[in-house]
Amino acid sequence: TYYTVKSGDTLNKIAAQYGVSVANLRSWNGISGDLIFVGQKLIVKKG
């Protein structure tokens, strides 16, 4: 599943929405910090 980042989104918010961990979101998307951008597509695997 792909999720497109919207204004106001955070990794924590997206992780909670999908029932996954922030660590997994980072791993699946090659993100090291907490910086995400509006319009960015993130890979999300269902929890």
Results as ranks from 00 to 15, higher is better:
T1P: 08
T1N: 11
T1Y: 14
Y2G: 05
Y2M: 13
Y3C: 04
T4W: 11
T4H: 10
T4C: 07
T4E: 11
T4L: 07
V5H: 00
V5C: 05
V5Y: 02
K6P: 01
S7Q: 13
S7M: 13
G8V: 03
G8L: 05
G8E: 07
D9N: 02
T10M: 05
T10N: 08
L11R: 00
L11N: 00
N12W: 13
N12H: 13
N12Q: 14
K13Q: 14
K13A: 15
K13E: 14
I14P: 00
I14T: 01
I14D: 00
A15S: 10
A15W: 01
A16R: 11
Q17R: 11
Q17I: 15
Q17A: 13
Q17V: 12
Y18I: 08
Y18F: 14
Y18C: 04
Y18R: 04
G19V: 06
G19E: 10
V20Y: 03
V20A: 07
V20F: 04
V20L: 08
S21W: 04
S21L: 07
S21I: 05
V22L: 10
V22K: 07
V22E: 09
A23E: 12
A23L: 10
A23H: 14
N24L: 13
N24I: 11
N24K: 10
L25S: 00
L25C: 02
L25H: 00
R26F: 04
R26T: 08
R26N: 05
R26Q: 11
R26G: 04
S27Q: 13
S27E: 14
S27K: 14
W28Y: 05
W28A: 04
N29E: 00
N29V: 01
N29W: 01
G30C: 07
G30W: 07
G30T: 09
G30R: 09
G30V: 08
I31D: 03
I31V: 09
S32D: 11
S32C: 08
G33R: 07
G33M: 08
D34Y: 10
D34T: 08
L35H: 10
L35E: 15
I36M: 06
I36Y: 04
F37H: 13
F37D: 09
F37V: 10
F37I: 12
V38C: 06
V38P: 13
V38E: 12
V38L: 09
G39F: 04
G39N: 07
G39I: 01
Q40W: 05
Q40I: 05
K41A: 09
K41M: 15
L42E: 00
L42R: 00
I43M: 14
I43L: 15
I43N: 06
I43A: 07
V44L: 07
V44D: 00
V44S: 02
K45M: 14
K45C: 06
K46D: 15
G47I: 15
G47K: 12
G47Y: 14
